[in-house]
Write a protein that binds this DNA or RNA. Sequence first.
DNA 1: CTAATTCCTGCAGAAAGTGCAAACTTTTAT
DNA 2: ATAAAAGTTTGCACTTTCTGCAGGAATTAG
Lengths: 202, 202
Amino acid sequence: MTTLKSENELPLRERKKVETRAAIHDAALRLVAENGVGHASVDAICSEAGVSSRTFFNYFPSKVSAIVGLSAFTVTDAQRQRFLERDGERWLVRDLCTLVGSVMDATARDGVDREAIRDLLGRRPELAPDVIRFAAELRHEIVALAEQRTTPARARLAVTLVMSAVDSALHRPLDAAYDDEFSTWLFEAVMTMQAIARESLD
Amino acid sequence: MTTLKSENELPLRERKKVETRAAIHDAALRLVAENGVGHASVDAICSEAGVSSRTFFNYFPSKVSAIVGLSAFTVTDAQRQRFLERDGERWLVRDLCTLVGSVMDATARDGVDREAIRDLLGRRPELAPDVIRFAAELRHEIVALAEQRTTPARARLAVTLVMSAVDSALHRPLDAAYDDEFSTWLFEAVMTMQAIARESLD
DNA sequence: CTAATTCCTGCAGAAAGTGCAAACTTTTAT
DNA sequence: ATAAAAGTTTGCACTTTCTGCAGGAATTAG
């Protein structure tokens, strides 16, 4: 079981929701690890989790989202506002790192386990395109934000830069030191990318 | 009609294949432009193209691939070999640009119309995640190649850098001058990214 | 013209995903 | 404590994408 927080204090109804959600996610993760993505049908996951297939789609909008344990990446209004406090290209990449970092930290707080996802991607690389597709939805939202601070083309480029670093995070273990400071790690990854680019260019 | 080349010279059978392929792609493009992605069902595309739905999937492995007009990005053996002639990180990014550029040029020669795709993405942004997912498959192949010249982490970073530039190409019109020299354009886009990164960093 | 390929098609069916209304459970109000 | 209200789960019917298989039609070769 992935859920360890807030054992009580929550009304019974909420607690049950958290539990079924975790049950579905855990079942999905387990079955995919065993049988591969293609052979883990929604029905199979459901009977493993003790839940009807209709309920499955009440909790997750798609099979992959259940496997990854994420219904959607979302940017909160507060995050959005904070990002727009500054204007223009200056600090753009840094601010994007902060923004994306806080989104990732939020999902982590909601029980999404980056390490589990990383392990899974190592064992089942077929999943990668789907996960990337998934991240593309967050990307889209963030590009829209970045476009309020610079030209569309530069916005896309900058966001891509940052999202690539996120991608790295899904493949490489982070130092424990960064566990709650994803944005710091992000920023360093972006600088590494730049270094590689400089070394290899021309 | 997208197909303008090799009017004859091809055996009749081959010519017909090219035609049905184009018919399906054009129908898909047209219907999606009119009704949106969700409302252009495979069946609708098929009757528009005058083809059975079973045939549809003989030509394209998925609905989006038909819309984009691409069955798969593939790296030829020659391209693979040329890329591996050099070893190590030096020139890595440049060689990746060459590799990816030649893959893109090949698809263009096969009738894939970057401009049509770009227009479509402008008009129907919902498609973007699917297209990205699509590109992720090519990405995977190229990462495997790059890993033969450097560490996995750096390979991923470098490939991401280059693929992001490809992404830009799907959003921005290229100067006509670059039409047959995609890799040159790619390389410049990568340098632009680096410039943005340098400006915005710290 | 005949025979061998190769291609198209329909059919049957798996699997993902959605809407709807009935049944059930928790919560709230009396 | 009990009944109404509110929220959840479920089954059912349905759409859509996509695959395997087998028969039939067209193309090509001999």
